[in-house]
């Protein structure tokens, strides 16, 4: 029975990890950059949700509709004014710039909102469903379901609209995409904004699950890296599968070796993957990186 509980809890949190990682892998697939500020944008989204709730009594699930566009906009601005120029220099430059942005944003949060842990205590936050011996956290279940829906919307966008196909095309072969008349900077900005918006969804959902504090982003960033590499850099399917898998691994680890060491298992797994099969489960051979 305990395994079923671990499996379910793991899949639920894994769904949210998948959502976060989808954004990261999308950004990598299209622009070939490792976005170190991804986790911190999750933190920002959670803070926005928290403040909407605390100051204006807007439930975080409603607040989602405000948080997501806000984050998408922030993402677009970040790309347009900073990251784009770094990409022009080199891959390493884009990594360092996103690290720099991460430091700035984390500390801005620290200054603005202090290091205190903040959480939303709305009616959902502490509820859970009982099903026989199984206990399912309600906010986590809602998060999973919404994540599922949003992922569906994302896929519909990517497969049924011209812009979405342009994004996929750009991630497969940028040169060829440009020859089709795709406007590269517009697609990059859009992809980055979408990636961050996805994180915005996750943030709004998680604000009633975890407490937020300025350095929260770092943990989630690390998990996302593991998921994305496991799934294959640039692969959306991989991010989903990887997210669910890592969710289960982490939850199981926490049960057997304790919460403070739960990362150890997937970190070691991460290192092994990097050595043995860096392309991950579904990764393509990206010439600039994978040879």
């Amino acid at each position: 029975m305990i395994f079923l509980q671990l499996l379910i809890s793991g899949i639920l949190i894994g769904g949210v990890y998948a959502l976060i990682s989808l954004g990261l892998t999308l950004i990598f697939g299209v622009m070939r950059i490792v976005n170190f500020v991804h986790g911190d944008m999750l933190m920002v989204a959670m803070y926005f949700s928290y403040w909407f709730y605390t100051l204006y009594s807007v439930d975080n699930y409603i607040g989602l509709f405000l948080v997501v566009p806000a984050l998408g906009l922030l993402g677009a601005l970040m790309y347009r004014f900073v990251i784009r120029h770094a990409i022009r220099r080199s891959h390493e430059a884009s990594i360092l710039v996103t690290i720099g942005l991460s430091i700035v944003i984390q500390n801005a949060a620290l200054l603005l909102w202090s290091a205190d842990y903040r959480s939303i205590h709305n009616e959902w936050a502490t509820r859970s469903l009982q099903w026989g011996d199984l206990r399912i956290s309600s906010p986590l279940l809602i998060a999973f379901i919404v994540a599922l829906v949003v992922t569906g919307i994302l896929f519909a966008f990517l497969h049924r609209t011209y812009l979405g196909k342009a994004i996929r095309a750009a991630s497969m072969d940028r040169f060829a995409a440009v020859l089709m008349g795709v406007h590269p900077q517009r697609i990059f900005t859009l992809s980055f904004a979408i990636g961050i918006a996805l994180v915005g969804v996750a943030g709004a959902l998680l604000s009633s699950v975890f407490a937020v504090h300025p350095t929260l982003g770092t943990q989630f960033l690390l998990v996302s890296f593991v998921v994305v590499v496991l799934g294959g850099l640039g692969s959306l399917r991989g991010a989903i599968l990887g997210g669910l898998l890592i969710g289960v691994v982490e939850t199981t680890s926490a049960y057997f070796i304790g919460s403070s060491m739960k990362q150890l298992v997937y970190l070691l797994l991460f290192i092994v993957i990097l050595i043995v099969k860096p392309a991950g489960l579904f990764g393509k051979r990206i010439p600039e990186v994978n040879q």
Binding site: M172, D173, F175, A176, L179
Partner: peptide
């Protein structure tokens, strides 16, 4: 039409 065709392989 670029050299080596450059199709989008997964499409």
């Amino acid at each position: 039409v670029p050299e080596g065709r450059r199709l989008f392989p997964e499409m």
